[in-house]
Amino acid sequence: MFISRSHQHFNDELSMVTDDDHEINQAQEHLQQCCQELKNMDTQCRCPALKKMVMQDCGRQGEEAQRMLGKARYIPRMCNIQPTQCSF
């Protein structure tokens, strides 16, 4: 959810400079939920799970999938968990 939402909002340049507190709070909640789910997984399963989520759940392909994978790659760092970056 966090990746999908941030992808939707950050595609639009105007939304990158928005100060809509509701949008920011929602993004933080989604990130916290994502972090909690990742923390509940074995360390070696985190990156494969992120990749699978992007490729399957979002149904994206090609350039769009690559952009979303690029964002997903750094989620462990944002969650302050290991590995700090995924290599996919």
Rank of each mutant, 00 (worst) to 15 (best):
Q28P: 01
M55I: 09
Q32W: 08
Q26Y: 04
S87M: 07
P83C: 07
P48F: 04
E64A: 09
M53H: 14
H7I: 02
V54I: 14
N25V: 11
E64L: 10
L50G: 00
R46S: 01
R46W: 00
N11E: 14
C79S: 04
V17M: 12
L38V: 02
Q61K: 13
Q66C: 10
Q56T: 15
L14R: 05
S87W: 08
D12T: 08
F10V: 08
N40T: 06
I3S: 02
E29Q: 11
G62I: 09
E37H: 13
N40W: 03
S15P: 03
A27Q: 07
K52V: 13
M68Q: 05
L50F: 03
P48A: 10
S15A: 15
H30V: 08
Q56F: 12
L31R: 01
I3W: 01
D20V: 13
F10N: 06
C45V: 08
Q82K: 05
M78Q: 07
E63A: 15
D57G: 10
Q28I: 02
F10Y: 14
A65S: 15
E64H: 03
R73L: 05
E64F: 07
R60A: 12
D21C: 12
D21M: 15
F2I: 05
Y74S: 05
I75M: 04
Q33W: 01
I24T: 06
A65T: 07
H22G: 13
P48Y: 08
Q44N: 07
S87K: 04
M1W: 08
M53D: 15
Q8A: 10
Q56W: 11
K39Q: 01
I75R: 01
C45Y: 12
R67S: 03
Q82I: 01
T43W: 00
